[in-house]
Amino acid sequence: MTPLHVAATGALVLLGIGLYGLLALRNLIKVIIALQIMVKGVVLALVAAGSISGQINLGQSLAVTLIVADTIVAVVGLALAVQVRRRFGSLDVQELSTLRG
């Protein structure tokens, strides 16, 4: 098993774990943690794809952009979670829905 196969497998597994967390978890901060895990998998996949195509620096450049964007998403999401906790008293995403049908 070459390092590239390990990286591709790791990317898939981390993506799967993060996707399961996004689907199943109800705590807002845990949802952001699941999103972070997914992004770790995508960073691995980008670098592996760059290495496979012989352009690892291009993959690194895209991965850096992804890391910056992901950090901004985490910061804004955590600020939202803090405000939601102050306003609603809970981090449960089910209780945030104000639409009643």
Binding site: P3, G10, V43, L44, G50, S51, I56, G59
Partner: peptide, 10 residues
Amino acid sequence: LLYLLGAHEV
């Protein structure tokens, strides 16, 4: 893992 792949900066 990224370091071992050769992506030192990332």
